[in-house]
């Protein structure tokens, strides 16, 4: 059980961690992918009989945000290395999966991914405007940024958590600020890119670009105000419907 052997096993866990959602099922969710990733550590540390006894205790559903599963896998590996009781490990796994999923969904899915998509939408808008070469560089930059942050938390999170033997993740003010910045900057990017795409697309038609552009901006601002001050679903719907009917009437006339 040398250090080189352990490092090799941990690298295998990290590789397998990428397919934690494999065989996702309604009954067990990510259980198969999770066990598939952690099995090399069991094989490294225990004999066949003990491995069997321990793994059968792990047989209950598991589900978290796929990027955040690395923290749980790292703690699991560390606890196995310290020869902790399997019941304690299962308890750790079950208590961490929901809070980490909540943080991961909010940060990665709602904010970082939205930022990437807004950035790429703007790049595509620029492609429509004719900057062919730069847009693919921009797409690559967007993907590189997303995956840098993704790997920082996914791979780096595994490494740091395993090294310290505790959850190496802090929900600090700095993190919250980063999340909020991504959220609002993505909204701005969407507005700019959508206007660019629409203005180019409407040039292909016989309708004046400026009219459509102003209608679009009007809807953006008006919908935002309705949402902000009235805060009712039916109000937004009725407002959109009324303007749509007006536009149709105007179009027919």
């Amino acid at each position: 059980m040398g250090k080189i052997g352990l490092n090799r096993v941990l690298k295998k866990v990290v590789r397998r961690m990428l397919s934690v959602q494999n065989l996702w099922s309604y009954k067990y969710m990510q259980l198969y992918g999770y066990l598939y990733a952690i099995i090399p550590v069991y094989r490294f540390l225990f004999g066949k009989e003990e491995m069997k006894q321990r793994l059968i205790k792990e047989w209950s559903y598991f589900n978290t945000q796929p990027y955040m599963s690395s923290y749980i896998l790292a703690l699991h590996s560390k606890m196995l290395l310290l020869n902790e009781d399997e019941a304690k490990i299962v308890s750790m796994r079950n208590s961490l999966m929901a809070p980490l999923a909540s943080i991961g969904d909010s940060f990665f899915w709602f904010n970082l991914r939205t930022f990437l998509i807004a950035f790429c939408t703007l790049s595509v808008a620029l492609l429509v405007e004719g900057f062919k070469g730069t847009v693919f560089v921009a797409l690559a930059i967007g993907l590189a940024f997303f995956n840098y942050v993704h790997f920082y938390y996914r791979m780096g999170g595994f490494k740091r958590t395993f090294r310290h033997g505790r959850l190496a993740f802090k929900f600090t003010k700095k993190f919250y600020f980063f999340e909020k910045t991504l959220n609002y900057s993505s909204y701005l990017l969407f507005v700019v890119s959508f206007s660019l795409v629409l203005s180019k697309v409407f040039e292909m038609t016989d309708v004046k670009t400026s009219i459509w552009f102003y209608i679009f901006i009007f809807f953006m601002i008006a919908d935002y105000l309705v949402i902000k001050y009235i805060r009712r679903e039916w109000a937004v719907f009725l407002f959109n419907l009324a303007v749509a009917v007006l536009l149709v009437t105007w179009g027919i006339i």
């Binding site: 990428l18 397919s19 959602q21 494999n22 996702w24 796929p66 990027y67 991914r113 990437l116 998509i117 790429c120 993907l143 997303f146 995956n147 993704h150």
Partner: peptide, 10 residues
């Protein structure tokens, strides 16, 4: 869904 989630599939 299964492997990676590097956002290439958007």
């Amino acid at each position: 869904l299964i492997w990676g989630q590097f956002m290439l599939s958007r």
